[in-house]
């Protein structure tokens, strides 16, 4: 009897482990349009309304717990904000002058750009209904999918700045890979006339992003703003339009042995506390053409 029970237990364990490994292998081997991916999207389609319902119903409880945590962070945040306010005041003065100059120059060359940002995109508002629980996958699930015009690789922003890009879509929901995910890369530049680089995540620290591939010798000052560079060549185009704010420079690491300096920045968007985001739809060609280009 005991031996039978032990055999049964081991058999179940072996079966479950084999099944997991088989799923892992098949999933890695197949393309995004494969069978398992399709089943996954179908399942999300069914689960998304449940998630949305739970998200709405339990929001007060979530807010209460979140508020408790926020109280602890409030003091240090207050000091940071005062310092930022000082910097911003100086920047506003400089920008007003620059804007006046730019207006005159635009008039000279005949450009007429709308002040609405970003041009040519149709923002679709979406609610965050799920979040990956591990530190290794920085992703959220939103309640808008292909039925709302959301497509893979479209940029996602919050009121503060860049959040990430759509990495998978079902009919009524989509997965957004955040800029803090280890697979993420965003071509960016320091403004107003700073160098270009690639913004990468630092796993485990969502308050710290890395602007890599910035050549040594290029002046980078603390407090400078980093925005998407939105480059375009004859065949390829960046996924992200030009000028979406990403973050502010906090420090610069310069190692003599390295070719590039590593610029650390703090993202503008609070990626731990996202409730509502906007997907920039309407530029699917750019997204499709630039599937592997950050």
């Amino acid at each position: 009897m005991y031996k039978k029970s032990v055999r049964r237990r081991r058999a179940v364990l072996a079966l479950l482990v084999s099944l997991s490994i088989a799923l892992l292998t098949v999933y890695f081997g197949e393309s995004a349009s494969g069978g398992l991916h399709a089943v996954q999207r179908g399942f999300l389609e069914v689960l998304a309304p449940l998630q949305e319902g739970a998200n709405r119903a339990l929001k007060p409880a979530r807010d209460l717990v979140g508020w408790t945590g926020d109280v602890f962070d409030a003091k240090s945040e207050n000091d940071d904000l005062r310092e930022q306010n000082e910097q911003l005041r100086r920047q506003v003065a400089a920008l007003e002058t620059a804007e006046r100059d730019a207006r005159q120059l635009r008039a000279l060359v005949g450009l007429n750009r709308s002040s609405r940002f970003p041009d040519g995109y149709d923002p679709v508002g979406a609610r965050v209904i799920g979040r990956s629980p591990t530190v290794w996958y920085s992703a959220i699930t939103i309640d808008k999918g292909s039925s709302s015009g959301v497509r893979t690789n479209q940029p996602v922003v919050s009121g503060a700045g860049l959040v990430g890009r759509v990495s998978d879509v079902s009919g009524g929901a989509a997965r957004v890979t955040l800029i803090t995910d280890h697979t993420s890369g965003v071509s960016a530049q320091l403004v107003p006339d700073g160098p270009n680089g690639l913004v990468k995540a630092t796993v485990g620290n969502p308050s710290d992003l890395l602007l890599d591939f910035v050549q040594k010798g290029r002046a980078v000052r603390s407090g400078a703003t980093v925005v998407t560079s939105g480059w375009r060549s004859s065949r390829l185009e960046s996924l992200f339009p030009r000028g979406i704010p990403i973050g502010r420079v906090t420090r610069v690491d310069s190692d003599e042995r390295e070719l590039y300096q590593r610029v650390h920045l703090r993202p503008f968007a609070d990626l731990r506390e996202l409730d509502v985001v906007e997907v920039l739809t309407g530029q699917s060609n750019a997204a499709e053409n630039a599937q592997v280009t950050p």
Partner: peptide, 24 residues
């Protein structure tokens, strides 16, 4: 073990993550 497998499977499905890792 069975509930662990199902929890991982459903979580990976819902998050569109690599299937099998969480289950394992």
């Amino acid at each position: 073990a069975t509930v662990g497998f199902l929890l991982g499977l459903v979580a990976d499905m819902a998050l569109l993550q690599t299937l099998g890792v969480t289950s394992l």
